[in-house]
Amino acid sequence: MHLKLELIVLPVSDIDRAKAFYEALGFRLDLDKAVSDDWRAVHLTPPGSEASIIFGTGLTSAAPGSVQGLYLVVADIEEARAELTGRGIEVSEVFHDTGGLFHHGHHAGEVTHHVEGQHRVDGPHPERASYGSYATFSDPDGNGWVLQEVTQRAPGR
């Protein structure tokens, strides 16, 4: 059986502001449909992605900004960061984790805090190891995204 992640529901407080933000990121607008004052769906897809995001009215009861750790994989972390900042998006500096652990818990503009086993260091991974360099940003509501550089996929991926 294949299970393919297709759609992630994001809780936002201002639909039009979120739509403008994700379009500025370069996400493709697939749908903006309102059936009534109680239901509107905005569906967007990141460039090159098979998975999409959706937000709107009547889609979720989750608190705006409560989704964290959404990963966007990029081939060149520095190039991706430069492109996004050039589009007016506030993105953290590139960093890596000397502990070699899955990155979690940091957002653009947030003070770095210690996570057991995690050792965040400024700059890309020294060998530019695949899966080793990160940058973070948040949407206007605080939903948290992570850019991760992947130059060579792990076996089975």
Rank of each mutant, 00 (worst) to 15 (best):
residue 3 L to A: 05
residue 7 L to G: 05
residue 7 L to F: 01
residue 9 V to L: 10
residue 9 V to C: 08
residue 10 L to G: 11
residue 13 S to Y: 01
residue 13 S to I: 05
residue 14 D to L: 01
residue 15 I to F: 02
residue 16 D to N: 14
residue 16 D to H: 09
residue 19 K to C: 14
residue 20 A to G: 09
residue 20 A to D: 15
residue 20 A to Y: 01
residue 21 F to G: 10
residue 22 Y to H: 06
residue 26 G to W: 03
residue 27 F to V: 06
residue 27 F to I: 05
residue 29 L to E: 15
residue 30 D to M: 12
residue 30 D to V: 06
residue 34 A to K: 09
residue 35 V to N: 04
residue 38 D to R: 14
residue 40 R to W: 12
residue 43 H to L: 12
residue 44 L to F: 04
residue 45 T to N: 08
residue 52 S to I: 04
residue 53 I to N: 10
residue 54 I to G: 11
residue 55 F to A: 11
residue 56 G to T: 11
residue 58 G to I: 10
residue 59 L to Q: 13
residue 60 T to E: 12
residue 63 A to S: 15
residue 64 P to F: 03
residue 65 G to I: 07
residue 69 G to Y: 05
residue 72 L to R: 09
residue 73 V to H: 10
residue 74 V to E: 01
residue 76 D to S: 01
residue 79 E to M: 01
residue 80 A to P: 06
residue 81 R to G: 02
residue 82 A to G: 06
residue 82 A to R: 07
residue 84 L to W: 07
residue 86 G to K: 02
residue 87 R to C: 03
residue 92 S to V: 01
residue 92 S to Q: 10
residue 94 V to I: 08
residue 95 F to D: 03
residue 95 F to M: 13
residue 96 H to Y: 08
residue 97 D to P: 13
residue 100 G to T: 03
residue 102 F to E: 13
residue 106 H to Y: 11
residue 106 H to L: 14
residue 111 V to Y: 02
residue 111 V to L: 02
residue 113 H to T: 12
residue 116 E to L: 07
residue 117 G to V: 02
residue 117 G to R: 13
residue 119 H to A: 02
residue 121 V to G: 02
residue 123 G to T: 11
residue 126 P to V: 08
residue 127 E to N: 15
residue 127 E to D: 15
residue 128 R to K: 10
residue 130 S to E: 02
residue 132 G to M: 01
residue 133 S to W: 01
residue 137 F to A: 07
residue 137 F to E: 11
residue 138 S to P: 02
residue 142 G to P: 10
residue 143 N to C: 05
residue 144 G to Q: 08
residue 145 W to C: 05
residue 146 V to N: 06
residue 146 V to C: 14
residue 147 L to P: 03
residue 148 Q to G: 00
residue 149 E to K: 01
residue 150 V to Y: 00
residue 150 V to W: 02
residue 151 T to G: 14
residue 152 Q to H: 07
residue 153 R to C: 00
residue 156 G to C: 04
residue 157 R to S: 12
